[in-house]
């Protein structure tokens, strides 16, 4: 069953990261320790908190240290190298709001997640399912 919601994709991918690349998962949680993220993808809001070396999806919105607003289209453009992170931010296709220190931690955490994503065997099928669900 394709992951149709970003929240489902994110939850499944974090489980895969924890299982297959614990080193990347631990690094992600270390960089973002104590942070609460609010991520909005095409209007779908996802909360994510980091504490005790674990990432936890929040059932409801909570006060966030970093707010991210983007779209599935941009996520695929980034993965397919049609756009860089810098271009995405400068063109306002990726809105990121927070204190500088927390934004830096978010960037480091994102890179740790991506380093895990390019290594974890489960990610390619997971991404394929997410892409398939996004097609009209």
């Amino acid at each position: 069953m394709p992951e149709t919601r970003f929240a489902d994709f994110l939850a499944t991918s974090l489980q895969a990261l924890d299982r297959e690349l614990p080193q990347a998962y631990a690094l992600l949680c270390t960089h973002l320790a104590g942070q609460q993220l609010a991520i909005e993808v095409d209007g779908e809001m996802v909360g994510l908190s980091f504490a005790g070396g674990r990432a936890r999806l929040l059932a409801r919105a909570a006060p966030a240290t970093v707010h991210v607003v983007t779209s599935r289209a941009l996520i695929f453009d980034l993965i397919d190298a049609r756009c860089t992170l810098l271009q995405a931010v400068l063109s306002d296709r990726l809105l990121v709001r927070g204190a500088p220190q927390e934004l830096l931690a978010f960037h480091d955490g994102l890179l740790a997640y991506l380093h895990g994503a390019v290594r974890a065997p489960s990610f390619p099928p997971l991404l394929r399912a997410y892409r398939a669900a996004a097609r009209p």
């Binding site: 397919d80 190298a81 860089t84 992170l85 810098l86 890179l111 991506l114 390019v118």
Partner: peptide
């Protein structure tokens, strides 16, 4: 040009 493309996120 970087291949595979997702790696451009890690080494831009």
């Amino acid at each position: 040009f970087k291949a595979p493309r997702p790696m451009a996120l890690l080494v831009p």
